[in-house]
Design a protein around this nucleic acid. Structure first.
Lengths: 218, 218
DNA sequence: ACCTTTCTGCTTACGTCGTAAGCTTACTTC
DNA sequence: GAAGTAAGCTTACGACGTAAGCAGAAAGGT
């Protein structure tokens, strides 16, 4: 009895690749492993995708497509904040993604849609073309940077105080007095230790609003 | 006549690794290639570095160490702006670096020094511990994000207008009306196309200043 | 002087990766 | 059924990081 297997397709390959990356990280996403997951030899995948890069481009765009766009009728600041937070949430669900997103030029359809929407929101709010362009670029730089740092950082936010307490002695040498004191503050619970993404988003959005009001669209 | 070769050392290996990465990108930095560059077999390197990860950690910290710290007597905003711009410049000299910096947990001595200095500047300017911590985290998220985006982006800033003009037809389908119009604006020279890093830095610094003045250090 | 330890670099080898080239099997279309 | 095409398989190549063990030279003790 020959095993009757669902036929391969680009879609199915990318879907499996996404699942594989989610479960085992970027390192576990190899052509051989991906093939195994689909009950197929590695080389068979090449009938449906050009090469591994195409797989990476594909799953990155699938992730971008998960970022949901806020309702058109939200005020621009809420919309933009929502957008940034949504991007962060999605990346957190797919921790391997931001690294990849930032490392390849790839601008898939989902990304184009996402940018176009953002420009629309800003233009609707009275931003000049130039300022709108600057605005989304600045926002995105921050969002990606923040997300990458968060994902790379080894300590879960909930454990900051505890970890700070445990590591205070490492900074006792006096070479890094400010870090030592900051660590003490965190250990004693005087401050939570890492800003939520909303902190930076609001900072940037408030600044953009002021710029818009200073130099309005021509 | 046996070739009399300078003896290996951790320092020499890391130095060569840095040079190799600079000249050929991260991909060209392999143990075999690195050995060849030093006139030595790949396995010989393992006498001086634990493994490839140690090499990567090492050269990343060397790059961080290149970021020069502004003078202590600069006002805090200039100091912070200077710091961000310096980081950007250094990363641009070593385009392979930010990717690596963000992907590994590694906090080498140069990084510790850099953070401690920044905290000192902010505390000296009257920021609370909490706000100072938020401040440098937000700044750095932006700086790294901005730098990564810039390095990944395929078009040199000088060619924006020309490239925009050449690609306008791709957006003619009407699916992305705002991007199409933005591209037109860039093509016609109505706006330069991408913000300098100073734009975002000032945005964030001005915002931080306002926050400091609203909720001063206890 | 000789022996012995240690240090440095070399050789060989294993299991992994992406993928080129060519083969085989199965399904369509007449 | 014959012919043509598509889908998956086999084998192989040249990378990669690095484990294990070897060879020769330098250094220290007697």
């Amino acid at each position: 009895m020959p095993s009757s297997r669902a036929p391969l397709s680009t879609r199915r390959v990318l879907q499996a690749a996404l699942t594989l990356a989610d479960s085992g990280g970027a390192d576990s996403l190899t052509m051989r492993h991906l093939g195994r997951e689909l009950g197929v030899e590695a080389m068979s995948l090449y009938r449906h995708v050009a090469n591994k890069d195409a797989v990476l481009d594909g799953i990155v765009d699938m992730v971008v497509d998960e970022i949901d766009l806020p309702h058109e009728d939200l005020d621009w600041k809420s919309a933009m904040r929502h957008r940034g937070e949504a991007a962060y949430r999605v990346m957190t669900r797919h921790p391997w993604a931001p690294q990849l997103l930032m490392s390849r030029t790839n601008t898939g359809p989902a990304m184009l849609r996402y940018i176009d929407f953002t420009l629309g929101v800003l233009r609707g709010a009275g931003f000049s073309w130039k300022l709108a362009d600057y605005a989304w670029n600045t926002m995105d730089s921050f969002v990606y940077g923040y997300t990458l740092r968060r994902l790379t950082f080894p300590i879960p936010a909930a454990d900051y105080a505890q970890t700070a307490a445990a590591h205070q002695h490492l900074l006792a040498g006096g070479e890094h007095p400010h870090m030592a004191e900051l660590t003490r503050q965190v250990a004693e619970g005087n401050h939570p230790g890492d800003p939520d993404i909303t902190f930076g988003l609001n900072l940037i959005l408030d600044g953009l609003e002021r710029l818009r009001d200073t130099e309005p669209a021509a």
